[in-house]
Amino acid sequence: MNNQTLFYITTLVVYGGVDVIACLGLSMQFGVAGVVNFGFIIFQAAGAYTAAVLSLPSDRANGAFQQYVAGLHLPFPVPWIGAAAVGGVLAIPFTGLLSRRLRTDNTAIAMLVTAVIANALITNYRPLFNGAAGVSLVPAPLASAIDPLSLNYQYVYCGVVIAVALATFLVLRRLTASPYGRSLRAMRDNDLAAASIGTNVRGRRTAILVLGGSIAGLSGAILVGYINLWAPSAWTYQETVVLIAALIVGGLGNHIGAVVGALVVPLGFEEATRYIPAFGPPGLVPALEWVIIGSLILTFLWFRPQGLVPERRRILGLASVRNPSTESVDLPSLKESSTDA
């Protein structure tokens, strides 16, 4: 295996890891807790920008061709911690929007719109993050210890990404399997009934938003440390749609499904198109990509709404349980729920 192939594989691993981490965050928010955060990509972007401007030197450096806030030139791991923190804190103002008063599709729209306009704002207001051009020359973490251009650096980065992804998976799985996770699923099912048995729905939603936001922010930091630049084109509202597609294909409500979906849709799919030679007018292949992603969503929603890896029924140990009287079909998670007014 020559170096070029190795570089390619490690790149795949890093991208895949970032996608997995982001999808896990959304899986916890949307799949388990039923929180409709269709602006999820904003949190990844916030993390990426935070990590970038925390690790970049002041914007007067490098010939002052970029304009951005902060520029504190902080070493790893501070930018990553900052990114996770910002992602979490950013979620707090949105909890009001995600309260019960709005119908769930209205909430979805509000979050989508927020993503669209956040993108427009950052694009137009250059002093924040250098507008449409975005921030570049973002320092690679630990560049002083290992040469960022070497293969060793790739291996280390892969290792870190895999470790973070694994840790995220284990933590989320522990949460979901616990009574806390059960109350989140109850909330997803019927938040009015959940409140009536004592669940503080608003508080839990806030907590889950903050948790998911932090995870998203961290994934952004990991990505920006690798590709060393970040611009509005990387986080259009459509990127959230890719993540939603990943969850629908992989399977909502369980984290293995999220991992599978992340590997199949954002990673597998976008990598597959790399091998298709560009044909037709320019931009045809990316456009077709989106057509196929949209079609994947519709196909799965119709034929297999539970996804590739359905949410498992949780059987609780009872000595005296006899044969279940009904053939329990795994209920697709997107059927009508009683929470919609």
Partner: peptide, 10 residues
């Protein structure tokens, strides 16, 4: 208003 997608025990 039972939780439809949770088991009876849950």
């Amino acid at each position: 208003s039972e939780f439809k997608r949770l088991t009876v025990l849950e």
